[in-house]
């Protein structure tokens, strides 16, 4: 299966907000929400200031914590990207709490919302809105190996000016679906150096929920069946007792019960 990925070159982002606007108008983004936020960052001390623009958006982790905790299946992986089927979301907020990048947010309708990699556009053969509008080629979308190669090429070039320049997302959180080219250390840019979320327990939860449903269903089916038999047996023993009471001595039926 081909996996796809975005390239996000922070060295090239000029903070123009074009992707933000394109994403919002192109997609049915819920009211009050935006899937990309551009944050201006300054590092260093005067007069050696350096600025860049951080894109806060879903990075489509391969080992996506949000997908692991989502109990309804609204969040799922597809072709390397993390999709969200908002129709299925229960608004439990587990993804909000689990995401190491604080991406998902409940929209006003009580359902989770985040970038789904322009699922509808891409499936129709198009390019994601943000990529299409970016005027400075800071964003690309392609098969992941090609994106990775391009990222390393760009990082190498960037290293001439910024010695700490590097690729982020090749392996982080299992490998991100948004490969970033950073002009500096991730920490300096406000990105967690190690976003891997230990989810040993959550994996259990995944197995537990279907198992619970199965077990409950089974117990209902089993007792439902037994109820018919047992109720008849009990009515019979009450009738036996009644007969015994009216004659004052044990009936053959009562004897029978005793022999069992």
């Amino acid at each position: 299966m081909t996996t796809y990925a975005f390239l996000l070159d922070i060295g090239r982002c000029i903070g123009c907000q074009a992707c933000v606007a394109a994403c919002k108008t192109g997609n049915e983004v819920p009211e009050g929400r935006q899937y990309i936020r551009i944050v201006e960052q300054t590092r260093g001390t005067f007069p050696n200031l350096r600025g860049s623009f951080q894109n806060l958006r879903c990075y489509h982790c391969a080992d996506a914590a949000c997908v692991t905790v989502c109990p309804t299946g609204a969040l799922y992986k597809e072709e390397g990207l993390t999709r969200l089927d908002r129709e299925k979301c229960s608004g439990c907020t587990y993804c909000v709490d689990a995401c190491p990048y604080d991406v998902p947010v409940l929209a006003d309708d009580g359902r989770s919302s985040k970038c789904d990699g322009c699922a509808a556009v891409v499936k129709a053969g198009g390019t994601p809105w943000c990529v299409k509008t970016c005027p400075s080629h800071a964003l690309l979308y392609d098969e992941r190996p090609k994106i990775l190669a391009e990222a390393h090429r760009r990082a190498a070039a960037l290293k001439m000016r910024y010695p700490n320049a590097q690729v982020y997302g090749e392996t982080e959180a299992g490998g991100l679906g948004v490969v970033l080219v950073l002009p500096d250390d991730p920490m300096a840019l406000g990105l967690p150096a190690n976003p891997n979320v230990p989810l040993s327990l959550t994996a259990w939860q995944k197995a537990l929920q279907p198992a619970s449903l199965g077990l409950t269903g089974l117990s209902i089916a089993f007792t439902g069946l037994a109820a018919v038999i047992a109720r008849r047996n009990h009515l019979q023993e009450v009738r036996t007792l009644e007969a015994r009471n009216s004659t004052g001595q044990p009936t053959p039926e009562a004897q029978e019960t005793k022999d069992q």
Binding site: T72, K88, C89, S90, G91, C92
Partner: peptide
């Protein structure tokens, strides 16, 4: 309703 797919859509909204 929070965790079971078939009921989940009715839970959204809080």
């Amino acid at each position: 309703m929070l965790v079971w797919g078939p009921l989940a859509p009715y839970a959204a909204g809080g």
